[in-house]
Design a protein around this nucleic acid. Structure first.
Lengths: 241, 241
DNA sequence: GTAATAGTGTCTGTGAGACACTATAAA
DNA sequence: TTTATAGTGTCTCACAGACACTATTAC
């Protein structure tokens, strides 16, 4: 990084974009994609995203795009999770010019806010399984796969699952989220004990919520103050996801 | 990411760089820095790095810079570890223009290859502890800290430590590396059993190496085929690093 | 011999997983 | 009453950590 290299005429013309993998835990793990109008990859599904402005940080660009394209604001719902996952910069990933894309993982509760942004009319929720089986635009299959794997891994040792659960939730809700994201079965009694034993993971609200089809009302919890889970909740070996 | 946004006149002028955090486990965890000649931050220490060329991938740029600035080739020594950690893109991180930097973590054995690259004359190995206590150029303190934390975390559940150990090593060598990187004490007998029980972590070479000051000759091992450690080797709680 | 290191044995506490069981409420 | 869910109890196995102990080599 010598001073000479900073000659404005010398540096190569790069464009920098952000791409957002927004996930929610419906009946299965689901992500938001948009259908592309123009070339290249016209008609193909793509991750929501866009250019980083010259006067905003990359993180700010990710927040802005999340809002513009999906209607999700990071300030909503006691802070949506938005996390940088990696940067994808192969030479030919965009056929028209050199574009470096920074991928972000975003998580939202299963009751997503109204999708009302400017580009959001094109937004479609589809199962991750289905999206990965479809050829997406650019290298978005790789990006999606990387972000989903990150999300799965972080459920083990962080309280990220509470972001997918919302402001209040039952232990059965949280259990379902783990099963959906990991596509695995977890013993509910053991899960309860583990979660309750993990310091700072969740806090009791003192209220209860009646179930839909019989059974006692379940205690409601809210996310705890902690962020790392000690001990972690480990994925079953050989997950089928 | 609409087609109109691709107007060559419209996209903002970004420069993209890579910065390398190269670590080795000497008496303590040590990193390679360079002293800056020109402004800004003239005379300050900085991470080695440089511009991504327009015709090379970001990963390729990281490999090239690692070679040019530190003399380390990823092909050497059964593949030096080189891994993308994160991208730093605050608006004012470079006072002259908008520069987005992709940070890479590189690990090398304690016998570093001859530092013989073009810019390598300026390269200095200093303890990470010391580097973090020094104001480095740009946001390199943040980058260094992030990369070191990544390295520490990955020792838990990957065989990354073997990259710091070299082609052959004793269990005592590997033990020392964990203690140095984590700045913690680990019970050697238990460490031995854990490492030997982890499938694919290390393989016996069948040879032995005599110690420096007494004691029986120690068995030599080489890195195993596996990459993930099951079960993981957990850091002691409240590490002092 | 003494000192240092390689390597083994063994005990204890904790936690993961399996699963039986009780309690409560809707239909 | 039946069915579904909330929540508890308990047993077993595996492993982490502590630490005593033996074996081998340099000096």
């Amino acid at each position: 990084m010598t001073a000479a290299a900073y000659d404005p005429a010398a540096f190569p013309p790069f464009a920098v974009t952000v791409d957002i993998v927004l996930l929610r835990a419906a009946d299965e793990l689901t992500t938001l994609v948009v259908r592309r109008g123009g070339e290249p990859f016209a008609g193909k599904l793509a991750l929501p995203g866009g250019f980083v402005h010259v006067d905003e940080s990359i993180q700010a660009a990710a927040e802005r795009e999340l809002w513009e394209e999906t209607g999700v604001r990071t300030k909503d719902l006691r802070d949506i999770h938005l996390e940088q996952v990696g940067t994808f910069g192969d030479v030919d990933r965009d056929p028209r010019m050199r574009v470096v894309s920074v991928a972000y993982l975003a998580l939202t509760p299963n009751q997503p806010p109204s999708v009302a942004g400017s580009d959001a009319a094109e937004a479609i929720w589809i199962p991750v399984r289905e999206a990965l089986a479809t050829p997406l635009a650019f290298d978005h299959n790789t990006i999606l796969n990387t972000c989903v794997e990150r999300a799965r891994a972080k459920l083990e040792y962080t309280n990220l699952a509470t972001t997918l659960a919302g402001t209040t939730f039952t232990l059965a809700d949280l259990h379902r989220i783990y099963e959906v994201v990991w596509n695995a079965q977890l013993d509910l009694p053991n899960f309860r004990r583990k979660v309750l034993a993990a310091d700072g993971f969740i806090e009791p609200t003192g209220t209860k919520r009646a179930g839909a089809s019989g059974g006692p009302a379940a205690s409601l919890y809210r996310p705890g103050k902690g962020t790392t889970l000690i001990p972690p909740i480990m994925r079953p070996v050989t997950p089928s996801g």
